[in-house]
């Protein structure tokens, strides 16, 4: 059992070598794995459990995190969750909701009764992604005319026409809310940006850029959040704040298995959930790939 588990975790790691996405899982994170296991890892993208090959890709919980329900036990109900998933799939047949992460650059086109032409398009960097089910939502941020603009979209809102991923990448943190306190160039995106083509088989790149913050006052105590993507937190805080940040650290929480268990959906249940929706999601993915191929071929035009 132990061995199969190890093979499983390593193969999972191979497929998804990023770590700071909100995972909703009890699995140990990749950097906690002892080195000797990493050596035996084999490039097996599907993963084998108990000798049988699972068809469901292991990275579905990162690509479709909103399909996993809220882990709070008091709020769970199998029938509700099932109905919710069915509605989500119904919506996904009408609109292509692509894979994206915090840090990716998106363009969202949506119906807006107040916009000229009744349609609006907003380009920005995804700084936050939360909630599950039909409530799933994300925040896009951009700086337009020296003014920071954020728009919060709901993933399954039927007024959204199109969600395009202009640049698919990840960052070092779960959220990029600190961009609000950073220099504006870090959240400025060209609104006429063209989508960058990324090979389908390639791993999603991690952008390890370090953001430079403006001097205090800040919206939050960033120094207490152990942020990886910030360059100069130390520059602006006082000794007292440094001491307090140290006092508020909770280094034992990573060993709190009960806490992890309560805040995540167990692996077995994840498998059940994704087994239910896998066939439809997979066919939607194939369709998306076909469309993408069509789009990437541009017929040369005659000049003059």
């Amino acid at each position: 059992m132990n061995i199969t588990n190890r093979v499983f975790t390593t193969s999972w790691r191979k497929g998804n070598s990023f770590i700071r996405i909100v995972t909703f899982s009890t699995k140990p994170q990749a950097n906690e794995l002892p080195p000797f296991i990493q050596k035996q890892s084999q490039p097996n993208s599907t993963g084998s459990i108990e000798g049988r090959k699972s068809v469901i890709p292991q990275n579905y919980r990162f690509i479709y995190p909103e399909f996993l329900p809220d882990p709070k036990v008091e709020w769970r109900n199998p029938v509700r969750e099932k109905l919710e998933r069915m509605d989500m799939l119904d919506r996904r047949t009408k609109i292509d909701i692509p894979e994206f992460y915090v840090g990716s650059i998106l363009a969202v086109t949506s119906s807006d009764p107040h916009a000229a032409g009744k349609i609006s398009r907003f380009v920005g960097i995804c700084i936050h992604r939360d909630r599950c089910g039909l409530r799933a939502r994300f925040i896009l941020r951009n700086v337009i005319d020296h003014q920071g603009i954020e728009v919060r979209y709901e993933l399954y809102d039927p007024t959204i026409h199109k969600i395009e991923v202009l640049r698919l990448e990840k960052r070092l943190d779960d959220h990029l809310l600190y961009l609000r306190d950073a220099l504006p160039e870090y959240s400025t995106v060209d609104i006429n940006m063209e989508p960058e083509n990324l090979d389908d088989s390639a791993e999603v790149p991690i952008n390890d850029i370090k953001v430079v913050l403006r001097p205090r006052p800040w919206l939050e105590r960033w120094e207490r959040q152990n942020l990886q993507g910030v360059a100069n937190v130390d520059q602006y805080i006082t000794d007292k704040q440094r001491r307090q940040a140290l006092a508020h650290e909770k280094p034992w929480e990573k060993y709190d298995m009960m806490k992890q268990y309560r805040s995540s959906i167990p692996e077995e249940e994840q498998k059940e959930i994704f087994a239910e929706v896998h066939s439809q999601l997979h066919s939607l993915e194939l369709q998306r790939k076909r469309n993408k191929r069509k789009r990437s071929f541009v017929k040369p035009t005659k000049l003059a």
């Binding site: 509605d87 119904d90 009408k94 609109i95 807006d112 009744k118 399954y156 007024t159």
Partner: peptide, 13 residues
């Protein structure tokens, strides 16, 4: 109510 099987909502100018 908008059924999730319906097309995306558009507003007429």
């Amino acid at each position: 109510v908008h059924s999730f099987k319906d097309d995306t909502i558009t507003f007429q100018p």
